[in-house]
Design a binder for these strands. Sequence first.
DNA 1: TTGTACGCGTTATCAC
DNA 2: GTGATAACGCGTACAA
Lengths: 341, 341
Amino acid sequence: MTAGRGTRPSAATVEQVAERAGVSRSTVSRVVNGGSRVSPAALAAVRAAIEELDYVPNRAARSLASRQTHAIALVVPEDTNRFFGDPFFAAIVAGINAAITDSDYVLNLFIASNDPGSKTTRYLTGGNVDGAIVVSHHTADTFVNRIAEAVPLVFGGRPAVPRDAYYYVDVDNVAGGRLATRHLIDAGHRRIATIAGPGTMPAGEDRLLGFRSELADAGLEPFAVESGGFTAEGGAAAALHLLQEHPGARPDAIFAASDLMARGAVRALASVGVRVPEDIAVIGFDDSPVAVAERPYLTTVRQPSRRQGEAITEVLLARLAGAEPQHATILDCELVPRETA
Amino acid sequence: MTAGRGTRPSAATVEQVAERAGVSRSTVSRVVNGGSRVSPAALAAVRAAIEELDYVPNRAARSLASRQTHAIALVVPEDTNRFFGDPFFAAIVAGINAAITDSDYVLNLFIASNDPGSKTTRYLTGGNVDGAIVVSHHTADTFVNRIAEAVPLVFGGRPAVPRDAYYYVDVDNVAGGRLATRHLIDAGHRRIATIAGPGTMPAGEDRLLGFRSELADAGLEPFAVESGGFTAEGGAAAALHLLQEHPGARPDAIFAASDLMARGAVRALASVGVRVPEDIAVIGFDDSPVAVAERPYLTTVRQPSRRQGEAITEVLLARLAGAEPQHATILDCELVPRETA
DNA sequence: TTGTACGCGTTATCAC
DNA sequence: GTGATAACGCGTACAA
């Protein structure tokens, strides 16, 4: 082994396949790309030759001639260093990968941290990929725009600064917020508070909107609206604040806009002797691993993250194939009743 | 926007840069690839032209001519669906990315799930990447061998089935195990048990070896050796089992080979009224987020995962550059004293 | 130091 | 249906 650089056994070429099959390069090329318009005999011969020679088309040559790279960039915005490690994004990547595996595209990973947009952007706008996916929740830097101008692009999640020309795939956070709130209402709760995400993130905003809407439809008003910053600590602090600010009348239920915040809230409540769900019911959002990492298991709203990743890719592939898919693709959430509500 | 497929504004080419700078294609090429052996005047002119035309080399053409793809594959073995989402791997990927960003290579992501090795392997062995990284802990499928035969490959973590020809970067799990055990001994503990990882994983084996060695050096014997499968549940069960099996003489300290198992153990102990660290000290391994996700914070051994990712890439890049790095690169661990020991 | 000319493996455009 | 042949954009002897 130990092939030095560039010292590969130089895989078979079209030329060799053609010779082996007794046809011309062109015919081999036709077989490789669709197989249409070739005689059954030639087709069989070429296929056999390909098999025997273990022929794999040279991507570079193909790209050069066809002016398509068959590569898709997955761009992770710079400010998201903890992108991986977050189960939510992990599931999305898994979905993207699954969908792309079924195609003949390759996924190029770009974590644009400590890069002021320049290098990655230059690469993407330089015609080195056919399309791009940006998975982000609160950045909408200008470099994204430049990418969008150069190649077809699809966002995971509604972009923070939406434009008509953008394509994105998102879960229905509004409906999810409604779902959670409805569950609380149906259980008889009336003094319902929420621990919301940061106002800069569309997902947080939408869930809050769903909360308010469902409450309004039921003729209720929010007991309180706290902010928890999508972290466990924030959730805990918000829950405690909720208790202190309203010594007389406690909320009887809390909708936390993420499982992390819900978990923090449940722990904080337990630490001050408040029972969940007996004293206060809590419902989260995401159905992330923390929901069942410890007792009590969180009642929550599941978002189909893996499916979202698949859908993102499907939309992009559709665009690359010349189709005109919807600009917005919205996926449904689902209630997951467990122990906390 | 909305560029159809292949309908890009066709970025500038060497030809255009050459014309703009008043030199030939070759000179431009030389400037782009190293800048050596060109007159200062020409160099300046070319650089200016490149800047003005926003020239980006066409990867496909470059690959075709140089017979190098400037792409590296990150292969995630098929049985690791939860690869992402694991903070350990997340940190490694971050490191890999950081190192690769500083080079002019591109990272191609292959999650080889639901693919029987065939498609990905064909791609990699077909000369479409210059090198590959396999991050795995307990798989050593034959497809890895085939990849290793085709391109330079570096493993993250010691491969389950080691071969002399393999290159890998690992943390010093043996030393880490010793470190943890030494910390327990220094604190005066003498009845020290361990909750080990699965025997199929090198990391688990090495940590256990370190545990045994340090104990032996101190003239001590393991109080008990349980198996926890690297999960929180396994850690909890092992801790409880430890208590039940030895009703008379409890261990006074436990070395859990992962933070997840340590966390499970601490929870289980608390659930039966055993105080940590007063009654039983517990030390983990990894310094993962769960170590500080809740109280008590875990005393643990930190492994430099991000650095490991960087080192993996560095070794691979060195090989691609024609150097002959060490086959094994071992990184040091570090004790992180917190609350549980 | 610089330029010329050829080849990398494939697709696309033609005639046949 | 099939086969020449010209690009595709770049690296690199080789010559100057």
